[in-house]
Design a protein around this nucleic acid. Structure first.
Lengths: 219, 219
DNA sequence: GTTAGCATGTAAGGAGTTACATGATTTT
DNA sequence: AAAATCATGTAACTCCTTACATGCTAAC
């Protein structure tokens, strides 16, 4: 049992902390606000909500606000279920927010932790950012060692893949450096929306094949 | 049953195509050559090898070459098992290499597909690269739409996270553009050291040897 | 003579997905 | 009145990890 997954549980508690929501909306928020990195399906969300209710961290409220004209006892019409964070749930979320183990900066967790930095205390933010950075630097060291060993033995594509992978990691390290610097000085990082107008600055265009107009809504 | 995972199966067949290996070495290769993106543990590798043998795609060879003095029936000393690709396995791998469905360019698969581009025909390479690019462009469009909708409502950290995520995707698109351009002109991309001449770019069969030492050994 | 790395496995389980099933409400 | 989207859920399955269990071999 226990759909008490790390990431999903954390994100659900965090989103509900801002305001109560029902499942469907929650899932949309998960897959847009935080969803650049992870996407969740109902098949994981609803069971997760259920166990969070069982833990006492969430409370279900079946629609029926006092000003709802359809709130007769008879019309038990599969009401929307609105989930609200309980006091215990708030406590739990704060406990999770404060954790700074490796769990906080591994690939699966870092994104969602960052997304809730607005609720996170500054020293925890620093520890998470620095933890992430040193994790990435370890990884870079390993990659460099491995490339030194295997260079000349790999074909061009494998090499190019490794080169691009390393550059991605290096880029994230630079990003973290900027963020850490900003935190240190107490200013809010970039903050400039840098309006990308309708100009399409990168030569992005060209619909290629595979054009099926499928959008997210992955059942 | 069936550890016939997409990615792992593909990578194992591809690596064994280059030369026979035993499990331990295979796992190291998986986690260095291709391993910038994925890392596999023995707990998935060995069962996978077993099912690939059952499918007839791999053959096991239990050390014991005729000149091995220890090859007595009594000293059944847990020999190294060397896995070799069978003819059927080679066929299977080529079948997988030729596939160009969405499976080829989604996040989980693209990396490993690229890693074996050296064995892949040029038109398949093009389809995979273009498929990947249009997948990423779809994603960008969604992100832009979502940002236009939610701007001003998100706190600085969530915004920064989305900005960085978008930039990462844009960067990968630029990379793909370069690669596609290179493929079109028939030249090998960035060409780090030792590049092959302008001849047929297929059939790059790098000879690698184990020789290596060290490593992460994430059990 | 003990640590470190080589080598092979298994059982249990975690974290999610897909496909299915159903029905309400809004838009076209 | 059809189509889309909103809304809730379950069962079966996938793919992989962790923790365990074992033993060989080289180096210090």
């Amino acid at each position: 049992m226990s759909r008490r997954s790390g990431v999903l549980e954390f994100a659900v508690l965090g989103l509900l902390r801002e305001s109560p929501m029902h499942g469907y909306e929650l899932r949309k928020r998960l897959n847009t606000s935080l969803g650049v990195f992870r996407a969740f399906s109902y098949g994981s969300l609803y069971p997760c909500l259920k166990t969070l209710v069982q833990q006492g961290w969430l409370a279900e409220e079946t629609g029926h606000s006092p000003d709802d004209p359809r709130a007769t006892p008879l019309s038990n019409r599969r009401a929307k279920i609105v989930y609200r964070l309980t006091a215990d749930g708030k406590e739990r979320f704060e406990e999770l927010l404060g954790q700074t183990g490796p769990d906080a900066w591994e690939d699966e967790h870092f994104g969602v932790r960052f997304a809730f930095f607005g609720q996170t205390s500054r020293d925890v933010r620093m520890r998470v950012l620095e933890g992430r950075r040193s994790r990435l630097e370890e990884r870079l060291a390993k990659m460099r060692a491995s490339m030194a060993r295997t260079r000349e033995k790999l074909d061009a594509y494998t090499l190019e893949l490794q080169r691009h992978g390393m550059e991605s990691v290096e880029r994230e390290v630079r990003w973290l450096n900027e963020l850490i610097e900003s935190e240190r000085e107490g200013r809010p990082h970039r903050a400039s929306p840098q309006d990308r107008g309708p100009g399409e600055p990168d030569g992005i265009q060209g619909r290629h094949r595979a054009g099926s107009s499928e959008d997210d809504t992955t059942t």
